[in-house]
Write a protein that binds this DNA or RNA. Sequence first.
DNA 1: TATGAATGAGTGTTCATTCAT
DNA 2: GATGAATGAACACTCATTCAT
Lengths: 213, 213, 213, 213
Amino acid sequence: MVKEISSSIKDESLIVKRRAQLHKGAVTLFKQKGFHRATTREIAKAAGFSIGTLYEYIRKKEDVLFLVCDAIYDEVKARMKAVIDTDTTSESSLFQAVESYFQLMDELQDEVLVLYQELKALPKDAQEYVLNKEKEMLRLFETILENSYKDVLSQNEITLISNNIFIQGQMWGFRRWVLQKEFSLEQYTQHQFNLLKSQLAHLTQIKQQGGVK
Amino acid sequence: MVKEISSSIKDESLIVKRRAQLHKGAVTLFKQKGFHRATTREIAKAAGFSIGTLYEYIRKKEDVLFLVCDAIYDEVKARMKAVIDTDTTSESSLFQAVESYFQLMDELQDEVLVLYQELKALPKDAQEYVLNKEKEMLRLFETILENSYKDVLSQNEITLISNNIFIQGQMWGFRRWVLQKEFSLEQYTQHQFNLLKSQLAHLTQIKQQGGVK
Amino acid sequence: MVKEISSSIKDESLIVKRRAQLHKGAVTLFKQKGFHRATTREIAKAAGFSIGTLYEYIRKKEDVLFLVCDAIYDEVKARMKAVIDTDTTSESSLFQAVESYFQLMDELQDEVLVLYQELKALPKDAQEYVLNKEKEMLRLFETILENSYKDVLSQNEITLISNNIFIQGQMWGFRRWVLQKEFSLEQYTQHQFNLLKSQLAHLTQIKQQGGVK
Amino acid sequence: MVKEISSSIKDESLIVKRRAQLHKGAVTLFKQKGFHRATTREIAKAAGFSIGTLYEYIRKKEDVLFLVCDAIYDEVKARMKAVIDTDTTSESSLFQAVESYFQLMDELQDEVLVLYQELKALPKDAQEYVLNKEKEMLRLFETILENSYKDVLSQNEITLISNNIFIQGQMWGFRRWVLQKEFSLEQYTQHQFNLLKSQLAHLTQIKQQGGVK
DNA sequence: TATGAATGAGTGTTCATTCAT
DNA sequence: GATGAATGAACACTCATTCAT
């Protein structure tokens, strides 16, 4: 499950430091020009070191992309974890999760855009690796929904609603040209959450009526 | 508003024919390797002609991408038009529109995938041109929602729900690795439409209660 | 000595007509873009027919260049001949020859420019063929000088002065950016001829003084 | 007035060294095949490096041509300067200048040939830049003539004679196929200088006689 | 005869990657 | 560890030439 990127450098802390530089520079660059249009020289420059040094920390240009993609979900998962661990059974916990997730998608919108548009450029095994991380993300929402709406939602509904939430978060970033003209992040979150609540409320109604009969 | 791609060929019907070949070959190829990884020679070959002939019908590699992107919404719009013109005021018309749209997204899923992942590779003016077509598509859903739920939905809600429907259709294609494992197209359509109906039903309830008071 | 360009067309008068069109269009084009930058399509268009037709009258692109180069000296020789045949022994005949020649170089300056800059693009045998025509031109001046200054000029001096006259004529065209800003053609002719006369006068003086001794 | 050619190489001394290699190889090559027929790969090879390395030192193929053209007049000017600075008022100084110039044109005849035949292939701004350098060269001769024959020659005569000297020098190279068969460089120089002296002597005579009267 | 669609070898140029310093 | 000069495979694009109609 682990996918390591080899480096000829021995000093581990240096690797971490350099790759952080690299990640930061690369995202900025990929956002502007996309992965394919960015040259390795530009990547090196954006990261603050020479082309020679770049190749001390990666083996192929693709590795840079992988580094970026890989980091995104790690960050998302790390930050979502905190929210979710607190409490996962009430409606408010769903709102908190959605809110945090949308908040995060707002902060990471450049990264997410890159992820969306360049994932396919990775070799198949790296793609699968990244998609697996995405599945873990999806499961976070599924878990919350399961816990809070056990009796109301079918498995299919849970899958679907999780997916919907998931891409609504990403949509905020990669459809910014239409959404961010009409909504602030708070408005967007509020409205989408209201729509979600309507859905769940109605489904709950139906189930309860069904249960009465 | 028109964006023509110049060709050195005089026979207009030949241009149409060759560009159809080109479109078809290019989509197949781009789906496999993406636009950037596909070479012009491969594109030519996939279309069934030589590199020289390819350049009789386009001027830049980008033009191929534009041709593909441009055609997608033209086809979508043409086919949606038929459905929508019939009737745009009942709930069933919304279902029909969604069903047709999802159906179409299923058929064109390769094209949509390409569109999503390569749009950014187009020059800015071509991007805008394509995005404008997307806006027209969005307006189709907005119109139906406006007609059927005039008193129930705010403008914001209409915008948002249209966007949600829009990307749920595309999601069926570009997230096929997760969705198409769990649902058939009919199931997906049915479930998403049910969720949508729940939403609308609940919002209608709220509005009516509000009105009663 | 003859260098024919083959054509698949039988009707000789048509060949002559088409090649005249070709010559005219090509000179205009070569003057603007040079031989190498001009494409065969452009040449055909400038001549007023299609690329297919062009290749009915030539076999290689080079042939067009040859046609142009070849025609230049033919025209120069034809027109100089008339002047020279009249009278070749007096000083006035030298002036007339120079004047006609400069006049001609003025009229044909585009062609001469092309000739100068593209001659090297011809295959070796065609180059030699054209240079031989140039030699014939040179001999015209040599003949006049020999006839009029038999006792005054050595063979070397005749060669040199002919060459000087020859290139002073061409200079008028291909150094137009400096000369034609300062002189009219008449002035240029007059001044250069005066300088030439001074030369010949002084040489005559010397020879006569030498002869006296 | 400066026209720099950009390079991605940082080591300035290396740039100078590589461009010298490039210059030398390019002249040899252009002399044989002309600029247009020479491929960049051939240019690189002639310079002794790979195609990739070539493009580290130039940005466009045209740059190679510019490099060559630019260097010619720089060299001519540098070497003429020495001669001219010594003494610019006597007849002997004119002879020395002409002799040095012809000598130089002999040494640089390949470069001059290239210059003559390919200058037009440069973009307009580079052409003007090079032609300006040529004008500076012309002014050298004008200055000497002005100093030595102030009272004898009109401005027009100075312009014209300078031009004549200028192109007679170049003629030695680009008409070598006729001139160098008949003359050694010394003979050519001597004869042309004699003709020039005759001219000036006669003009001096005329002016003096005119003055006496 | 005239046309112009088709061809593909050839060209300028880029850029990921290596390696000597 | 860091640098950046060198490399050459690979690419987009052009254009002379052919040939079926």
